[in-house]
Write a protein that binds this DNA or RNA. Structure first.
Lengths: 150, 150
DNA sequence: GTTGATGCAAAAACTTTGCATCGTG
DNA sequence: CACGATGCAAAGTTTTTGCATCAAC
């Protein structure tokens, strides 16, 4: 873990979180979460890609359910939603063991570089704490123009 | 300016930037940029809202042109594109006099709080510089759960 | 057995594109 | 007056929704 332990966030497991809100643990929800756990944190998938991968592994889950499930998992703090490049939202597993990462993005060609920063994560944690929010994840997007496009 | 001067970014005016690339200064492009200058930095509009406001002021610009123009102005570094809440992209004026701002967002209800941070902006500037990018804008998105939703 | 979840197909929301015409440089 | 930009309408993408049926609790 690269972050000072006082900023640690505990992310809840699926079953207990669902029951607390009168929601149900279905095969479909498990399959979607398992898929993200198998590919690990740091890999992002679109709704369409999640659907494709599940179909490919002989799991029939409808695209509508994928969308409903992704939203649910985001609200539970298990997945993170972000928009990189074009083509809709992408989702990735949130994990205590994988540091939050940031993006440097060229506004001309879309070239994207990842980087990490303890200071940024601490600043996010301080902002959350000061307003009484429970921190889930921080990500800095830096818009810039890459050497090639300059 | 809240940022150390070594991180200052010069944002180019419209006319000269367009000519450099063989593009033309049209009434429509001026109207869109003027609209953002009139409402000032820190206010974000969707493509639909830009269209509505121009129509309301007796300027007939088609929605297709709005989309084409917004993309152009983003690539020129004059506007910033971001995704807050649902409902598509939103655009805001980039200004040297208005500090970059960050968002603390509740993943349950969407409640959003803005904050500023010198340290975050410096970290973004350092990341850009280290890879030879020209900095345009940095914004930190902090995902969290607000006190009401906890 | 209740009530929440799913699947399907239709619709909505957002954005892009082809093409004839217009207007800037 | 050439070539980039616009307007319009049509099409493309991504996401949501209504409703009958299914299945978790």
């Amino acid at each position: 873990m690269t972050v000072n332990s006082k900023y640690l966030v505990i992310r809840n497991p699926l079953g207990s979180g669902l029951h607390q809100e009168g929601k149900r643990l279905t095969k479909q929800r498990l399959k979607v979460l398992n898929l993200f756990e198998n590919i690990g944190p740091g890999n992002h998938l679109s709704a369409e890609e999640v659907h494709g991968k599940l179909i490919a592994s002989n799991s029939k889950v409808s695209l509508a359910t994928i969308y409903r499930t992704l939203r649910l998992l985001v609200e539970m703090g298990l997945l993170n939603e972000r928009e990189l490049r074009e083509g809709g939202h992408r989702y990735e597993l949130l994990s205590n063991d994988f540091p939050d990462h940031h993006h440097l993005i060229c506004i001309r060609c879309g070239r994207t570089e990842e980087f990490e920063s303890h200071k940024v994560i601490e600043e996010g944690a301080i902002a959350a704490k000061s307003l009484g929010f429970k921190l889930i994840e921080s990500s800095l997007n830096v818009k810039a123009i890459c050497p090639n496009c300059l």
